[in-house]
Simulated scan of single mutants.
Amino acid sequence: MRLDPSFIWTAFTLLLSAIPTTLIITAVAMGCGILIGTTVALIRIYRVPVLHQLAAAYVTFIRGTPMLTHLLLIYFGLPYLVDSLAIQLGWSFRAVSIPLIGFAYISFSITAGAYLSEVIRSGLLAVNKGQLEAAYSIGMTTKQAMKRIVFPQAFAILLPSLSNSTISMLHGTTLAFTVSVVDINAKSQIIASSNWKFFEAYIAAAIIYWGLTILIERLTAIIEKRINLYNRGGVA
């Protein structure tokens, strides 16, 4: 077997068209994951009756099972649930109408939500409780205090972990090919299947993932720099 450098470049140019799909899956999963994670974190911090136990079970189950398992459970289980409800409620909608990428969105969002709930919870707990008490003393409600004082400080604390989670999710999107979503990983397999130059195709894919990872790291560094400037009283 001989390495074909020219095909690495060919594969690289062909893989560029799959980058938007990978980035969209990552963005949707992280965006929904942050919303789910924040909700779960607050439920666990304030120990909301019943919901606290359900939230803890959700986090334990998701963190204790593989990401691929979540995807397959959603892929095979969601159509059964949707079709059953549709029949009972008389809906015309059927699971076959759900786009394949929709299963990836749902599965990865649920996975991200469990992991991010712990990241967000640790960030919120790291903020000095005296900050919240001071906010109450000047007449702020809990919602105002969380929005104006606690969450901004927690975000600065959890930013590195949030960056790592984003990178992990970016790499985790490679599993989307199991439900026929053509991301970078799936595209590299399709490209290589015509001439069996899988090694070259995967090298090209690795370079793209590496570049995207570096981009996330650089964006994180810029945001972190602006936050540090703000915390020191400078101009962001």
Results as ranks from 00 to 15, higher is better:
residue 202 Y to I: 08
residue 215 L to A: 15
residue 57 A to M: 10
residue 156 A to R: 13
residue 185 N to C: 09
residue 66 P to W: 10
residue 126 A to T: 05
residue 145 A to S: 12
residue 194 S to C: 01
residue 65 T to A: 13
residue 149 I to C: 06
residue 201 A to W: 00
residue 55 A to R: 04
residue 94 R to K: 07
residue 150 V to I: 15
residue 101 I to E: 02
residue 51 L to M: 14
residue 118 E to Q: 12
residue 37 G to Q: 05
residue 148 R to Y: 14
residue 221 A to N: 11
residue 99 P to R: 00
residue 217 E to G: 15
residue 213 T to N: 10
residue 96 V to A: 13
residue 45 I to S: 09
residue 99 P to F: 00
residue 120 I to P: 14
residue 110 I to N: 02
residue 56 A to T: 15
residue 226 R to Y: 09
residue 29 A to Y: 06
residue 57 A to V: 12
residue 231 N to A: 09
residue 5 P to L: 07
residue 212 L to D: 01
residue 84 S to R: 11
residue 18 A to S: 14
residue 75 Y to C: 06
residue 62 I to T: 10
residue 172 G to H: 01
residue 64 G to Y: 09
residue 155 F to M: 13
residue 46 Y to K: 14
residue 34 I to W: 13
residue 156 A to Q: 08
residue 158 L to H: 04
residue 147 K to S: 14
residue 170 L to G: 01
residue 127 V to C: 05
residue 113 G to F: 03
residue 168 S to M: 10
residue 224 E to C: 06
residue 213 T to D: 07
residue 15 L to I: 10
residue 78 L to V: 15
residue 117 S to C: 08
residue 229 L to H: 10
residue 227 I to A: 03
residue 46 Y to P: 04
residue 59 V to G: 02
residue 4 D to G: 03
residue 197 K to D: 01
residue 64 G to R: 02
residue 43 I to T: 12
residue 227 I to C: 06
residue 33 G to F: 07
residue 182 V to Y: 12
residue 140 M to F: 10
residue 162 L to K: 07
residue 151 F to R: 02
residue 99 P to M: 00
residue 94 R to Y: 01
residue 214 I to Q: 15
residue 236 A to H: 13
residue 109 S to G: 03
residue 79 P to T: 02
residue 115 Y to P: 00
residue 116 L to C: 05
residue 202 Y to M: 13
residue 163 S to H: 02
residue 98 I to T: 01
residue 120 I to Y: 04
residue 108 F to Y: 15
residue 67 M to D: 07
residue 116 L to D: 03
residue 180 S to L: 09
residue 235 V to P: 07
residue 76 F to S: 06
residue 69 T to F: 11
residue 206 A to P: 00
residue 148 R to S: 04
residue 171 H to V: 10
residue 53 Q to V: 11
residue 59 V to P: 03
residue 62 I to Y: 13
residue 15 L to K: 03
residue 61 F to G: 08
residue 6 S to Y: 08
residue 94 R to D: 09
residue 28 V to S: 10
residue 128 N to Q: 12
residue 202 Y to Q: 05
residue 150 V to L: 11
residue 48 V to T: 14
residue 20 P to M: 00
residue 199 F to R: 06
residue 178 T to P: 14
residue 141 T to G: 12
residue 9 W to Y: 12
residue 51 L to T: 04
residue 218 R to T: 11
residue 194 S to Y: 05
residue 135 A to H: 07
residue 128 N to S: 14
residue 184 I to M: 11
residue 93 F to L: 04
